[in-house]
């Protein structure tokens, strides 16, 4: 019972912290972000496992975490508000070639981030971007202006 309570608490606290930190936090993983993720995992693990190194405990914790994940995704499919609370909403940052500065500042995205994603689409300049969307996952997708 103990391990399930631990897993639920850890899941809830992590979900809350990462939602507060915002989707930009660890979305585009740099080398340092990756190291940070490992450290977070290490710090979490101790609290979740406590001193119980049994396989049963490990399976219980994993089952609880995955169960919560599946449960919340099912709930998210049925309720729009749960879906938004857990998964966030997409946000248009460049609308029809117009750069929406205010939204970018608030989501901690700058033009270099958008240009980086644009380059991955083979674009060279900001004026070739028709739409840029900050996705729920934290990535930026780019829709180029039609040629001509």
């Amino acid at each position: 019972m103990d391990s399930i309570v631990r897993a639920v608490v850890v899941y809830a606290v992590l979900l809350l912290l990462f939602r507060i930190a915002g989707k930009r936090s660890l979305a585009e993983i740099t080398t340092f972000d990756f190291v940070l993720l490992l450290i977070i995992a290490e710090a979490t693990q101790q609290a979740m496992i406590d001193n119980d190194n049994s396989m049963t405990n490990a399976f219980l914790v994993i089952t609880t975490l995955l169960g919560l994940d599946v449960g919340l995704s099912v709930l998210g499919q049925r309720s729009r508000i749960v879906d938004r609370l857990i998964n966030d909403v997409p946000l248009v940052l460049v609308e029809d070639g117009r750069v929406l500065k205010d939204r970018m500042t608030k989501s901690r995205v700058d033009e270099t981030d958008i240009l980086q994603s644009a380059r991955q689409e083979g674009l060279e300049r900001m004026d070739q971007v028709k739409y840029a969307v900050l996705e729920r996952s934290g990535g930026i997708s780019i829709i180029p202006k039609e040629a001509g």
Partner: peptide, 29 residues
């Protein structure tokens, strides 16, 4: 539940009210 609206030519479920509340809550957080 995905709710898909329209922003310009994009079929996208933007929710600006929710987004603004979220920004506020994040800053409180």
């Amino acid at each position: 539940m995905a709710d898909v609206g329209r922003t310009g030519d994009l079929e996208i479920g933007q929710a600006l009210d929710f987004q603004r509340r979220q920004w506020f809550i994040q800053r409180v957080g």
